[in-house]
Design a protein around this nucleic acid. Sequence first.
DNA 1: TAGATTGTTAATCGATTAACAATC
DNA 2: TAGATTGTTAATCGATTAACAATC
Lengths: 233, 233
Amino acid sequence: MNTTKIPKATVFRLTLYYRYLQTLCRAGCHTVSSAELAKGTRVNSAQLRKDLSYFGKFGVRGVGYEVKKLMRRIQEILGLSKSWNMALIGLDHIGYAMLQHRQFEKRGYNLVAAFDITGRYAGERIHSLTVHSIDEFDTVMQNNPIDLGVIAIDSEHTQQAADAFVRAGVKGILNFSSTLVTAPKDIQVKDADFTILLDNITYAITRDTNKLEVPSDIHSDAPLPIHGIALSV
Amino acid sequence: MNTTKIPKATVFRLTLYYRYLQTLCRAGCHTVSSAELAKGTRVNSAQLRKDLSYFGKFGVRGVGYEVKKLMRRIQEILGLSKSWNMALIGLDHIGYAMLQHRQFEKRGYNLVAAFDITGRYAGERIHSLTVHSIDEFDTVMQNNPIDLGVIAIDSEHTQQAADAFVRAGVKGILNFSSTLVTAPKDIQVKDADFTILLDNITYAITRDTNKLEVPSDIHSDAPLPIHGIALSV
DNA sequence: TAGATTGTTAATCGATTAACAATC
DNA sequence: TAGATTGTTAATCGATTAACAATC
């Protein structure tokens, strides 16, 4: 029983390595050095070797890593050859895109149920999947073993959606909503609200533009922003 | 000139604080303690106070923070009252969803141009925005001042899309593709490929299920995964 | 004044990386 | 053997948090 903690960042990068290895494999490469793989994934090469070392010794000194072998190892570590059933709540938002274009199915994530909270799509078949009304949630979830829940609504019902998923026995939740969600700690929750990333990008742009200053004395009594989630003040 | 480095994680959390403050504001709250705001954003309260301390002293000892005032401060710090023009490449994928449902426009991110690489939507008007063929990229970009580029294709053309955006003078790129993108370092790039998050969730689920083991000797010669981006081996 | 909560320090924790001995 | 590159150590860097003096 090895008790070394695996950094989350390491697990994240493992996926990056895997994808680059796929590219190399398709290109017919047989071996790759940590330097090359690191470059392709924008990572320090010592970082990469350290990441792999948490799981074993996969390379050959003086030579590098065998592409297919390393892929297989990462596959095993990440459980990439498993297949997972997902259910989706919300078709407004990003949910409709997920429903239409199932890129992730190639990666073992199968969308097997979709629930519309607006009622707009309920009953429709979209790419061979029938959209259910949210009222049918319990019945449908009972009849299908679902591993993962995807929340693609952005409203005061976000937490309810999460609760419903938890009750239905999912083990993980991907939350696209900008509302944070609470779940028992054995349920894996990841927030994927990309508008935060936009804010991060524009902050960095603004900082670069003005260079240098952390204003020592902010004192405008500027109005609250004109756009933005109606600040009914 | 204050040279203190602001941790990226701090900037990220600032958005979280802001959104929770919006909720409080709508609920009619006038003041909030670091403990409450921290709880609402799943953060340690010392963390929150430390985050704010990078930018100034916004609270009152023994009392807490004035909700509206703190919102205004974070707004200024993050530049949330600014407005940004975005262009989008790719309507297959998540791009179509962005085009249809413009939730982010409430936050000051305006989609002003969309380019289709498949030609499927070129010429169509979707929610008062005309979709252009990718051939018209240079012309359209020249005639509109674009701050941010969104990449929503997932193909070998990802880097070309990024290069085109850079040539057109964008200052930041949000990349939904699972291909990493290279750009000059004064261009802010954020990767938002959510399939990585799915991999992270399922890794954590699998780890929890088997508990404890970092296998000491992985030696299966299992086949490469059946799904997944055709491993043409 | 007594109670509450901030702002800040110092300790801790975790993640990154340079450097190099091991070894193919 | 000579050259190359891994695996690992130790140093560094950065981020989190407990604790508490300052102070409303």
